[in-house]
Design a protein around this nucleic acid. Sequence first.
DNA 1: CGGCTTATGTGCCCTGACGTACAGACCGCG
DNA 2: CGCGGTCTGTACGTCAGGGCACATAAGCCG
Lengths: 261, 261
Amino acid sequence: MVRLLAHDPRQNQILAALPARDYARLVGELERVTLVPGVLLHAPGAPFEFAYFPTTAIVALILANDSGASAELAMTGKDGLVGIPLVLGGVSTRFAMTVQSGGEAWRLPAEVIARERDRGGTLQRLSLCYAQALMTQMAHSIVCNRHHLVDRQLCRWLLSSLDLLPGNQLDVTQEVIAHMLGVRREAVTEAAGKLQAEGLIRYRRGHITVNDRAGLEARTCECYRAVRTECDRLFEAQAASKCSSINCTLDTPRNSLIPRR
Amino acid sequence: MVRLLAHDPRQNQILAALPARDYARLVGELERVTLVPGVLLHAPGAPFEFAYFPTTAIVALILANDSGASAELAMTGKDGLVGIPLVLGGVSTRFAMTVQSGGEAWRLPAEVIARERDRGGTLQRLSLCYAQALMTQMAHSIVCNRHHLVDRQLCRWLLSSLDLLPGNQLDVTQEVIAHMLGVRREAVTEAAGKLQAEGLIRYRRGHITVNDRAGLEARTCECYRAVRTECDRLFEAQAASKCSSINCTLDTPRNSLIPRR
DNA sequence: CGGCTTATGTGCCCTGACGTACAGACCGCG
DNA sequence: CGCGGTCTGTACGTCAGGGCACATAAGCCG
C-alpha cells in the first residue's frame, strides 16, 4: 500500500480524472518509464508510438526550424499528456519533445489512444481539453515573446516549471533555460543575477532554489497568471461535465447541453 | 449548377472534404454570412454560438493581455474553421477573432457542431486536423517572433494572407498589419517601404498589390514554407485516410535523427 | 591537492525595434 | 474644388538583446 503511492499513474491529472471504469480498462496497458533529463523523447516528424502521461517528469515541446532558430512552445507535466497529435489524428508533428526535468511517466501505445479516440470516451474528451490548454500556453508565448522582457519571461518559466514539480527546486543550467526561452545564455545569466540579487532565487551550478515564490509571482509578466487561470478553467469545466457531451458509448445519459460559462 | 460557383459552401476546404452523406446532413443548417472587415467576430471569453467556415473571408485569431500587449496567433480562411474550442470541448477561449479581410463565410450553430462531435464523424475528424494545423501556425509564430526580422515576418504575413485570397491584392492598412504582427506601425512602414523599393509589392493607402510573389517567397523567413508544408501534409493525410482511424504510414521521413542544438 | 571540464559572470560594440514627434500625401465628401 | 480626416513617410534619441571574447568559479576525478 505504500508502494501504490510511490508510483501511481493517477499522479497524472488526466489519468486521475478518468472514471473508474475507463481507468480499469486502461491500467493494464499502462507502462511505467523513467525519463532522463535532456533526452529527446520524440524526434520531429516521427510518428508517435506512445502517448506519455508524466507524473513527476516535465517534457518540453520545442520547435526548431531549418536555420537552427528554436523556442519552447509549451511544457507538459503531470497536468497533461505528450502526444497530442495522436489525439488530433495528425499522427506526427515537427515539434521535438525533450525531457526538461527528469522523472517518471506512464505511457500508452498509439493503438490504444486510437482505440479510445474512436470510442469517443472520457480519455479522448480530457485529452482534447488538454490540447486546448496547450494552445493557450502557446498563444501566450507568442505575445510574451513579442512584448515582455527576458527577466519577466524567466520568472514565468520558473513558475510554470515549479507548478509541475514537487518541491521548490529545479535542476537545470542557464544554458538549457536559454535554449528554452530562445535567448542567449548570457541574457539568462543577467536575468537570473537580478532575481538572485533581489533574493527571489538562489543559483548554484545547474541547481535553482526558489526562496520567494510570491516575489517571483509579483515579478513575472501577467502571462503566467493568465495561462494558469485559463487552463484551470478548462480542466474544471471538463471535470464538471463528466458524463455529458462526447459519448458514443451506450451507458451514459444523453442530455448534453452546452454549459454556459 | 451555375449558382454553385457563386456562393458555394464547398469553397471551404473542410466542407469540401466531407463525404456527400455528411455534407447532405449539414447543408440545410448552413447559414451564409457576410463578414465585414475589422468586425470583432467573437469576443474573448464568450461562449461560441456558431462555428464559421470562411470561403472568401479571412479571420484573425488575436490574443490581447490585460496590459494591452497583443499579437496575432493565426489566421483562418477557406482552409479551416473558426471556433475550434467547440470542437475541442472547451466552449470558449481568451482569443479574440476579428475579420481581417472581408468576405463570405458559412456558419453552423454550436449545437450542430456538438452533435457532430458526439457522432464522431468526418466533420469532427477534419476539424481536429485543422486544430493541429492551427497549433502548427502558432508554434512557428513563437519561433518567428523570437528570431526573425520584421520585414521577413511581413513577407510571411502577406504570403499567408494571399494564400487565402483569390487575387494578388489585399486591402489592409499598415496600422492593421502592425497590430497583427504586434509591432509599431512605423516598423511596418519601413519594412513595406523596403519591399516596395525592391519591386515586390505596391502600397497605396490600404491597398497592397503583390507584383512579385516569387520574390516575396525568396525574401520571407522559412516559417512560411514550413507552415505551408506541414499543413498540407496534415490535410492530405486526413483526406487520404478517409474512412479509417489512424494509420501510421511507414513512409514518414526518417532522415533527420537528432536536431542540432 | 592540482588539473580538467563545465557552468557562470562581465564587458564591449552593434543593431533592430521602440517611443515620440511631426511632415507630407492621399482620398472621400460636402 | 477645397477641406479634413486618415494613412503613410521620415527623423530623431533610447535601449534591450545579440555576437563575441574572455575571466572566474564550482564541481569532478585522479
